[in-house]
Amino acid sequence: MHRNSYSLAALAAAAVPGLVPVRTTPIATPTEDLDVAGIVGEQGRRVMVTSPSSTASGVRLEKDLKVTDALTGTPLHVVIPPVLGFVKLSEGGRAAVTEAPVGRPLMLENLQDSPELARSLGQILARIHTVPRYAAEAAGVESFTAEALLAEHHERILAAKEGGHLPAAVSQRWEGLLEDRELWDVTPQFIHGDLSEESLFCSEDSVSALRDWSSSRVADAATDLAWLISTLDPERFDELYAAYREELPTAVHPRLMERAQALGEFAVAEWLIHGLETGDEAIVSDARGMIADLDADLAQLARDEAERTYDAMGAREEQP
């Protein structure tokens, strides 16, 4: 069941001894079946309460809390709001109260405008990807092999193709990427799995908080970079990526950026299939628009290549 901000404030008071709520503030959440609110208590104390509204969201919240607990012993603890308490819900499950994330939600415009913030996020991503695999698996996250990840991509692209949703050029490009075995020679690492503006917070020019670990798993590090390489200006992403590489104790896969770009494109197919499965025409239309844009970009690249080839042939013929 969904709860309003007053009910959430009451849950926070029950979970945290001594907390006297004064007012509430809205906090965006990545999923519709989690009720989240910021609570401001006496003396200005700020906490965040999260309550699941379905069994599925309760399972995700429990996973989030378990991973959060495992990460408190890693360098990431400085950006993970600590858990303060729990309260059982009448319908089953429990709500959780944490310290409120420090700072403000990190919007893409913030990254575009601040090289320092982009570098800070690059460093945080590197720390995520260097969490020991045994620690991640001890927290109960799923672990995937490189072969399983590639098979998952194949299945998704095939579903989009067989449904008649892919133009020929897009289909050929994606199939060609999937056939490049070297590109998918992945060493699985711990990843956040669902980075978004709702999960990141910043203070001045640094990442101050990171939440929602319910999609974390041991998989392809390129997954966490795909969203960023698809949306940031190339110059800003290069700064983020340079900080990422400097923070890592080992060298990155030589084609990690290329794979992140591919995953950014594949995400469109995933979005389309999600829309089709849920019957959401707005999502389907949005995904088809993005596929059409990619098809147009590929057509323009083909024209540009043809012009360069033609000009080169002309230059050779003019030579004595």
Score class of each variant (00 low, 15 high):
N4Q: 09
A9S: 14
A10Y: 03
L11G: 05
A12W: 01
V16D: 04
V16E: 03
V16P: 07
P17M: 01
G18D: 10
L19T: 06
V20C: 10
V22C: 09
R23P: 02
R23L: 08
T25I: 12
T29S: 15
P30R: 11
L34P: 02
V36M: 04
V36A: 11
A37N: 05
A37R: 11
G38S: 09
V40H: 05
R45K: 13
R46D: 01
T50S: 14
S54T: 15
T55F: 15
V59K: 07
R60F: 06
E62P: 00
T68Y: 01
D69P: 00
L71S: 03
I80M: 07
P81R: 01
P81S: 02
P81K: 07
G85K: 08
F86T: 09
V87M: 08
S90M: 09
E91M: 11
G92P: 11
A95Y: 08
V97R: 06
T98G: 02
T98S: 15
G103M: 11
G103D: 09
P105E: 12
M107T: 11
M107E: 12
M107R: 13
N110W: 02
D113L: 12
D113Y: 09
A118L: 03
R119D: 03
R119S: 13
G122P: 09
G122L: 04
L125G: 06
I128F: 15
A135G: 00
A139W: 06
L149V: 13
L149Q: 12
A151R: 13
H153G: 01
H153M: 10
E155Y: 09
E155D: 13
I157W: 13
A159G: 01
A160K: 02
K161P: 00
E162K: 11
G164D: 11
H165P: 00
A168T: 12
A169Y: 05
A169P: 07
Q172R: 12
W174S: 05
W174Y: 06
E182H: 10
L183S: 09
T187V: 12
T187E: 15
Q189K: 14
Q189E: 13
E197F: 01
E198T: 03
S199P: 00
L200I: 06
L200H: 07
D205S: 11
S208W: 07
A209V: 03
A209C: 08
S214G: 07
S216E: 09
R217L: 03
A219K: 00
L232K: 04
D238A: 15
L240P: 03
Y241V: 00
R245V: 11
E247F: 00
L248Q: 10
L248Y: 02
P249Y: 08
V252Y: 00
R255Y: 08
M257G: 13
L263M: 14
L263T: 03
G264D: 05
E265I: 12
E265R: 07
A267H: 09
L272M: 06
I273F: 01
H274A: 08
T278S: 15
T278F: 07
G279N: 10
A282T: 14
A282V: 08
G289M: 09
A292I: 01
D293G: 07
D293V: 11
D297L: 10
A299K: 07
A299E: 15
D304Y: 01
D304R: 12
A306I: 04
E307W: 04
R308I: 03
T309Y: 03
Y310A: 15
A315G: 02
A315H: 13
